[in-house]
Design a protein around this nucleic acid. Structure first.
Lengths: 347, 347
DNA sequence: TTGAAAGCGCTAACAA
DNA sequence: TTGTTAGCGCTTTCAA
């Protein structure tokens, strides 16, 4: 036997079997075992079979650290995990992470989470990249003016952004995003098809490019259908009571019969106002949210909402990442995916 | 200079600086640099200072793979990331992961996510442990009869469970959990203090030990206050419409003035029934949920809910993990933490 | 307090 | 098709 005792059927040995153990037991060289694992095509079928059987007998699994050291890779994708925003319905991040973990697994990667330090958006990234702890990053919070993206680009650290470099003309990195305007277009057209003509918009403040994008979808669809928009739009903070207040004002001043909102959080505010005014969502006034959060799903009447294809986003990101890491030429700088509309009783 | 060119102010070099580069530049041996990083006390102050400065100049950060190989550790904690249950309000997992990432960071660990394969609860664990890709696991879904816990125990893989080994008398592993009964006790007492005497329970099916635990808190508090419970309890699936139906039946048959629910999902069902019957939550009928989900937070009237101290759970788990990994004797087999009650308008 | 030697387990490069 | 050699960058052990 090798230097460590690998009795079959025993507990996990003190130290797991190594390549050398397998090689000795199978009567081949270490390199051959390595090839059996990584380049099976190079082996003669019977040798391969013998080595594979020995691997199975010993329960051998290549040591990650050794492989990482040798290949200068880690098979790890770093993701900065920002805290959930309590008091909002926003949970895009969480659904996305799930999708990313799945998509990464299929490509042979695992996802490494590290915390956000609000004071220093670079911290965390810095350490992981310089210690070669991860092969690449997925950057999600690009709306903050992209300090990470800029920094990572300069460090030549491989990464893909979930989100467009909105205002950053010099950004040259690869990104995947969801077409928010297309989402609100879907929502608005859906309401028009339902017979609504006075459709209000409640969105975020002007400094949010994502918010402006979503707003544009509503605006263009209204105009394309020859419908008025004057006095029908509102910009507020992304909190429930702001949505409620905006809805109250709009109802009083402009008598909309439907609302398209930049988030489920704002839509909940609208629903609150309707509830207070004894207006039935879906019957008296239609409401559409954005993100298809759990809140939209479990709210009693069910909130119609734009759903981001986060599974597809994750798959696309991993695909791009692989290309990046294998130094293939990445054909497109950015990929824009179409959201869908989940229709429920509120519309 | 070393074998790689580390011009100051240059881009990230092709290969990052190594210990040897720092040693050469600082005029000391590699071991001394290693000590400067890991055992600074061993160095003479002026040597330490010189080495540290060189480290800073070069932007040196120890290579993870090399360190991992040498020390047979990875500083990684594995967590099986189960998909969000759409259509429910359950988001405990997500809040917990955030807390775990934070707590792990402080202890020098990162969190490695791997996906759940429903067919085989062991898959994923197996590979990671035998390739020494992670130092330990955090196991969350212990209610499934603990196949992972049993398996991991047998493999002598270090892990801490979030959740008690309810029905498993032979389980010998370490765990951290939240006292669900204490939570529903808080909720029930809160309602009693508000003057309610007919307080109903809507919980899960009997085969859920977590559900039975939460139910016990309601039951004992009712009894302790000499209040009736007959005809006031219901066991259903954890979906909104089941909660709604149960509430309707209970209201018709037993006229409760308040509901304690095993989940926010069920509480949403109750709110739905109240809405249909034009009963005002909090004024006509009180409702308390469990988990303090985003749904509870953004629902227009605000849902009173039991909140699990997930931050504390994470800290406790990491603490235990560290003890486990440093082969200290872990003093207690299990730790039970107290939840709190977040009071909103629904009660 | 500092340095030298050895080796963790693997794979790239090359030789047979 | 298989084997040999070397070395990835670090820390443990031991010597100075």
């Amino acid at each position: 036997m090798g230097r460590s005792d690998h009795r079959l059927g025993s507990q996990l040995p003190v130290t797991p079997p190594t390549l050398a153990d397998v090689a000795e037991r199978a009567g081949v060289s270490r390199q051959t075992v390595s090839n059996a694992v990584n380049n099976p095509d190079l082996l003669r079928p019977d040798t391969l079979e013998r080595v594979r059987q020995t691997i199975a007998e010993l329960g051998y699994s290549p040591n990650r650290a050794a492989r990482n050291l040798r290949t200068r890779t880690s098979s790890l994708i770093g993701l900065r995990f920002t805290p959930v925003q309590e008091g909002t319905a926003n949970a895009t991040m969480d659904r996305f992470v799930h999708s990313l973990v799945e998509a990464s697994e299929e490509a042979g990667y695992h996802v490494l989470l590290f915390p956000a330090d609000d004071d220093d958006p670079i911290s965390g990234y810095d350490n992981l990249i310089s210690s070669t702890a991860v092969d690449a990053f997925v950057v999600t919070d690009t709306y903050l003016g992209n300090p990470q993206a800029t920094w990572l680009s300069r460090q030549r650290a491989p990464f893909v952004a979930f989100g467009r470099p909105w205002d950053d003309d010099v950004a040259r990195h690869v990104w995947v995003d969801v077409d928010g305007a297309a989402g609100t277009r879907l929502a608005t057209q859906h309401l028009i098809d339902r017979g609504h003509t006075r459709i209000a918009w409640i969105g975020w403040r002007k400094d949010s490019p994502i918010g402006e994008d979503r707003r544009a979808g509503w605006l263009s669809t209204m105009h394309a259908n020859g419908l008025p928009t004057t006095g029908l739009a509102s910009r507020v903070e992304d909190v429930v009571h702001s949505g409620a207040e905006a809805a109250a004002v709009l109802l009083d001043e402009s008598r909309p019969t439907a609302f398209v909102c930049a988030s489920d959080t704002l839509a909940m505010g609208v629903l609150h106002t309707l509830w207070i005014r004894q207006l039935a969502p879906g019957r008296d006034v239609a409401v559409v949210g954005f993100d298809d959060s759990q809140v939209a799903q479990v709210y009693p009447v069910g909130l119609t909402s734009v759903r981001q294809p986060l599974e597809d986003v994750a798959v696309e990101i991993v695909r791009t990442l692989r290309a990046l890491l294998s130094h293939q030429q990445v054909e497109t700088r950015g990929v824009l995916l179409e959201p869908t509309l989940t229709i429920r009783q509120s519309s």
